[in-house]
């Protein structure tokens, strides 16, 4: 997902406090920033929310790439609004992470020096306009699968951020599908472009959910704490079941010959993505990893004068006000 393979932290707290905490979660209580929480809960959440926030921010780059080249003024305005939303989502999530005692600058530094990750999906390039369709339809579609249940997560600020995000996310997916519909109703060349985008984004989209976590101890702990609501496999299955009929509607072919409806499980059987590619991308060797971080680093460095300038101006105004009193 937007947060993949988040390692949950072991916790060494007082067993009595731990079981009282677990009882609150089991009763559906929300945990708020000033409440007692296990260190492991805090650290795991910082990692997960931070990774989610970074994904929103880095996720602006593949789409930002097409703003200046959108095929019409309307499409340009829509894409600009979508990318602005992603910035907003990143900000909601950074604020949620900060309530856990990490600063915004620390989070940025951890992204830039590689201590924190962002979703593997944003390390793939967006080569044609149809990729804007595929990203909205598949990538935002996959994100929604995970974010909708996370609205019920146990940590109050995270849950509230998710509620805001989910309200806005559906526009993102629909504008992507709308692009795909237009392309698929266009010339054969346009339809081929849409098919090519689906071919390139299908498996990376499946990878967004992360590898199977059937035997993962970390997932078990995170699920008990309600900071992970479903297993990766459940969400991936749901995504495939939802997306295959949509591809059929578009007249496109999902690039997996083994896809077949399975009556017994009430879902599609499908091929797993190439997990060695996933591990390679997440460890820094995807097509765009270097470029993405370099772009973020440049934005951080070149924005320094703005951050300092506004701080200096605010300090001067404060001083002027004090002098006037």
């Amino acid at each position: 997902m937007y947060a993949q393979m988040v390692k949950s932290e072991a916790t060494k707290d007082d067993p009595e406090k731990l079981s009282a905490f677990q009882a609150r979660i089991d009763a559906g209580d929300k945990i708020e920033p000033k409440d007692w929480m296990p260190e492991g809960y805090r650290k795991t959440l910082i990692r997960q929310i931070g990774q989610h926030a970074h994904s929103e921010i880095v996720g602006q780059l593949p789409e930002g790439n097409w703003i200046s080249r959108a095929p019409s003024l309307e499409r340009k305005a829509i894409l600009l609004a979508k990318v602005q939303d992603e910035a907003g989502h990143g900000l909601y999530l950074y604020c949620a992470a900060e309530t856990l005692g990490v600063t915004r600058d620390e989070l940025t530094e951890m992204l830039l020096d590689g201590r924190m990750k962002y979703s593997s999906i944003f390390n793939y390039p967006t080569l044609t306009w149809a990729d804007m369709g595929a990203v909205g339809w598949l990538v935002d579609g996959a994100a929604i699968m995970n974010q909708v249940p996370l609205q019920r997560t146990s940590y109050g600020p995270y849950s509230r951020a998710m509620i805001r995000i989910c309200k806005e996310e559906s526009f993102h997916q629909r504008q992507g599908f709308d692009i795909m519909m237009k392309m698929c109703a266009g010339t054969p060349a346009q339809k081929a472009m849409a098919q090519d985008a689906l071919n390139r984004f299908w498996y990376p989209a499946l990878m967004m959910f992360g590898p199977s976590d059937k035997e993962s101890v970390h997932s078990e702990q995170s699920m008990a704490w309600k900071i992970k609501m479903n297993t990766n496999d459940e969400l991936r299955q749901k995504f495939v079941d939802q997306t295959v009929p949509q591809a059929e509607y578009l007249g496109l072919t999902v690039p997996d010959e083994s896809i077949v409806w399975n009556d017994d499980k009430g879902g599609y059987d499908f091929a797993e993505p190439d997990w060695s590619e996933f591990y390679d991308v997440i460890s820094g060797n995807g097509p765009c990893n270097v470029d993405r971080i370099a772009t973020r680093q440049r934005a951080w460095d070149e924005g320094a004068w703005v951050r300092e300038g506004l701080s200096a101006r605010a300090a001067k105004r404060r001083a002027d006000r004090t002098a006037a009193q």
């Binding site: 900000l91 915004r104 805001r164 951050r307 506004l310 701080s311 605010a314 105004r317």
Partner: peptide
């Protein structure tokens, strides 16, 4: 209350 943000001063 809807959330929080960082800014240099009240105008920004």
């Amino acid at each position: 209350h809807v959330g929080s943000l960082h800014a240099a001063d009240e105008k920004t």
